[in-house]
């Protein structure tokens, strides 16, 4: 048998993986190796596979992912800092048939938007909150976030986060899991192929639960910030596994009973 060539393999019938059609052609502004891009693509894949484009309204935050609306081809609203869950609440209540999600970073969701996060979850709004936790304010240049680990250096904790002065990092997923309004709370990652595939499954579950009107779905993605952490992307992923995952362990925190 003749040796199979590269050109024999790259035929449409052999296609195994291609980025989602719902990703636009715009080059993402994220730094090399940033988990935001990966998280966007997983979300886009689910929206495409579940045929949700026509009924999706996404709410973007203030932070690095403020321009997310340039990258996924669905209708978007750009919220004020921390307020995405309030916008999402109104969208879902006024148009209950739409698929509504917010996409928020740690500063947005766990600092300035804490009240909106807690109360939206407590009311059990039928929305998906996608929370990207990389323990730092990336957009403004690497300041301490509410989720910055103890001892972790940032531009506003240059000697490391001192718990006695700056308080402890906050575990938002654990907090919202205690509220009766949330139906599904899980913590995932995007640094490995396995992690990405698990996140995809989690988002698909959130779609199902939202269709079934079961309450708020909260998916935390523990992610990296190579620029803010001052590491290469590969180093940042390793550091995340060795440090972030210890404090923010991956896995389901709250799952609804099967129907």
């Amino acid at each position: 048998m003749a040796e199979i060539t590269f050109n024999d393999i790259i035929k449409p019938e052999n296609l195994t993986y291609k980025k989602s059609k719902l990703m636009t052609d715009n080059v993402m502004h994220y730094c090399p190796g940033c988990g935001h891009g990966t998280a966007h693509q997983v979300l886009a894949e689910v929206l495409e596979e579940e045929n949700l484009q026509e009924r999706t309204v996404g709410i973007t935050p203030v932070g690095c992912s403020v321009l997310m609306y340039n990258y996924i081809d669905v209708d978007f609203q750009e919220a004020a800092h921390g307020r995405a869950p309030a916008l999402a609440t109104a969208v879902k209540r006024l148009m209950p048939d739409k698929f509504v999600f917010t996409y928020q970073g740690d500063g947005d969701l766990a600092a300035i938007g804490t009240a909106e996060t807690i109360h939206t979850c407590n009311r059990g709004e039928n929305i998906l909150i996608l929370f990207i936790n990389n323990g730092i304010y990336g957009m403004t240049g690497g300041q301490m976030a509410p989720t910055t680990l103890e001892g972790m250096k940032s531009s506003t904790s240059p000697y490391g986060r001192d718990i006695s002065m700056m308080g402890s990092p906050i575990k938002m997923a654990d907090i919202v899991a205690m509220l009766p309004g949330t139906c599904y709370v899980t913590r995932q990652s995007v640094n490995t192929a396995g992690g990405v595939r698990k996140l995809k499954k989690a988002i698909k579950k959130a779609v199902q639960y939202q269709n079934e009107k079961r309450g708020t779905c909260f998916i935390e993605v523990v992610s990296n910030c190579p620029s803010g952490w001052k590491m290469t992307p590969v180093e940042s992923n390793k550091w995340m596994e060795e440090n972030m995952f210890l404090f923010y362990p991956l896995g389901d925190i709250k799952v609804p009973a099967e129907k």
Binding site: A80, V91, L94, E116
Partner: peptide, 18 residues
């Protein structure tokens, strides 16, 4: 009934955007 005036006006923002 929102959790604050801030949330209420941002609910208005979300609804108006629809």
């Amino acid at each position: 009934q929102a959790e604050s005036e801030v949330a209420a006006i941002n609910m208005v923002y979300g609804g108006a955007a629809c």
